[in-house]
Design a protein around this nucleic acid. Sequence first.
RNA 1: UCCGCAGUAGCUCAAUGGUGGAGCAACCGGCUGUUAACCGGUAGGUUGCAGGUUCGAGUCCUGCCUGCGGAGCCA
Length: 429
Amino acid sequence: MQPTISQIGSYVGKEVRFGAWLFNRRSSGKIQFLQLRDGTGFIQGVVAKNDVDPQVWENARNLTQESSLYVTGTVREEERAPSGYELLVTGIEPIQIAEKYPISLKEHGTEFLMDHRHLWIRSPRQRAILSIRSQIIQAVHEFFYQNGFKKVDPPILTPTSAEGTTTLFHTKYFDEDAYLSQSGQLYMEAAAMALGRVYSFGPTFRAEKSKTRRHLIEFWMIEPEMAFVDHEENLKIQEEFVSYVVQDVLKHCRRELNFLTRDTAKLENVKPPFPRITYDEAIQLLKEKGHEIEWGEDFGAPDETAIAESFDKPVFITHYPTEIKAFYMKPDPNRPEVVLCADLIAPEGYGEIIGGSQRIDEPELMLKRFEEHGLSKKDYQWYLDLRKYGTVPHSGFGLGLERTVAWITGTEHVRETIPFPRLLNRLYP
RNA sequence: UCCGCAGUAGCUCAAUGGUGGAGCAACCGGCUGUUAACCGGUAGGUUGCAGGUUCGAGUCCUGCCUGCGGAGCCA
């Protein structure tokens, strides 16, 4: 294989040839500095007029921003270079001289950049974020495989909604109505009864008119579901899981985190156990901070941020009122007005990254909830069956990938944490 | 859906109700260590759309469109 820029350190003193794009050029009359990228990294190529064939000089001079080429040169250590290496160019074979590139090195507005998202992802910052996203995805799979989970893929086309709360994308399934999945959870409960410990990792669709830095219309969710796991063990698995992912990124993506000027000390600190407060305590805390909130209300984004500010790690908020949570959550046996659930709030104002709970396993209570929520027993017969044929205590949770990427990378808005975001007013590109 | 802000050159922004400018990008030229290089020059405009007020509107008023920020909902 030809070398990549990321591997260039092992070719010091040798001549290499690889494919690259020119993302910038600075010239000084008799010396040109070519800023080259190949997707794996960046390196500066130096072309000195007196040291190269006139054709090489001319080829370099004609390269425009984002032109593609094969470059040949000698690798050398250079302490002035950000990566520590530089390429003394000896050959340039243009593949294509690019047309005038729309994205300049100067600042651009969000609308313009989003319209050119297919090109924007070439920029160093976007490359760093998407690289870390890839590492997070890999770490997620590693964690679950190491802990005996099986990956199960729930359907994306579904006949009805899972929770009945959020607005779904409607489509047709031949002559029937169908909806894009907003959560695979109910199917994962069935899978947990078959395979024990399972997780899903796939796209999720919410037709909500949400317009904030924490919302996407299409986003990726990791949903583990575990038989014979209660609320307490559920939280332990969550804190082990989140810590594993963060530490793995710290191990493999130092360069990217530094480029993004992420304060890694805050990430180093993300190790079990995570602090826990009950919903009751959270209400008390917010009242002390002057927030206007009463028991029984759900937290808004400013409330979550205020709670997160009181801790230097992700924090669990447990035992929410039964009234404001999903129908399938198991009530606390000692206090049926609250459920055995927890939301995990990321530090630094990145908001809720996990929602989870122990599920109702008693058939009678599940039937009662169906009646209370007006859910169709016919549509969900398969789900009710799970409580009839060997029901067991079980728990699960859902982690939002993009919010997790935003938090770990220190990115303000989730739209930069997914290659091609689907937003309220954006389906292009 | 609601609240707030904005829309001027390819991009980022100036312009007191009185002749629409600058930086970057592009093009031409200069420079052997540049780091969003720098210096000189050239070219680049239906001021989001429609209407109104005025001797005169990029600027003031009304409506619409688009975008941004936030809320609700959620991961």
